[in-house]
Amino acid sequence: MRVVIAECQVDYGGRLTAHLPMARRLILVKADGSVSVHADDRAYKPLNWMSPPCTMTVLDADEAALEATTADVDPRITQVWVVRAHSGDTLQISIGEIELDYTAELGVDPGLQKDGVEAHLQQLLAENPSAFGEGWSVVQREFMTAIGPVDLLCRDPAGSYVAVEVKRRGEIDGVEQLTRYLDLMNRDPLMGEVRGIFAAQQIKPQARTLATDRGISCLVVDYDALRGLDNAEDRLF
Rank of each mutant, 00 (worst) to 15 (best):
A64P: 01
H86A: 14
I93N: 10
P75Q: 13
L91A: 09
A85G: 14
D72R: 11
H86G: 08
L100I: 05
I95L: 12
E97Y: 08
E63V: 00
E67G: 00
V73H: 03
A85V: 00
E67N: 05
A68N: 06
G96A: 09
V83T: 09
D74T: 07
V58N: 07
A68Q: 01
R76Y: 07
H86R: 15
V73S: 04
Q92L: 05
I98E: 07
T90G: 07
I98T: 07
W81D: 00
R76G: 15
A61F: 01
T70C: 14
R76P: 04
D60R: 05
T70R: 14
L59V: 00
I77E: 03
A85F: 11
G88T: 04
W81I: 00
A61C: 09
Q79W: 00
D89S: 15
V58A: 10
T69L: 13
E63N: 02
I93Q: 05
A64K: 01
Q92H: 09
E99C: 10
G88W: 08
R76F: 10
E99D: 10
T78L: 12
D89H: 11
T69V: 10
A65V: 06
L66Q: 04
R76S: 14
V58C: 05
A71C: 07
I95C: 07
T70L: 15
L100Y: 08
W81L: 04
L91T: 09
E67R: 06
V80T: 14
T90D: 12
A68P: 00
T70I: 12
S87I: 07
L66K: 02
T90N: 14
E63M: 02
V82R: 07
V73T: 06
D89L: 01
A61T: 00
A61N: 04
R84C: 02
E99W: 09
V83W: 09
H86K: 13
T69K: 12
A85D: 14
E97T: 09
A65S: 10
D74M: 09
A65M: 08
T69Y: 12
R76Q: 14
D74N: 14
T90I: 13
W81S: 03
T69G: 09
T78I: 14
R84T: 02
A68E: 05
I93S: 07
R76E: 11
A61Q: 02
T70H: 15
L66V: 01
V73D: 00
I95K: 01
A65Q: 06
D89C: 05
I98K: 04
T69Q: 15
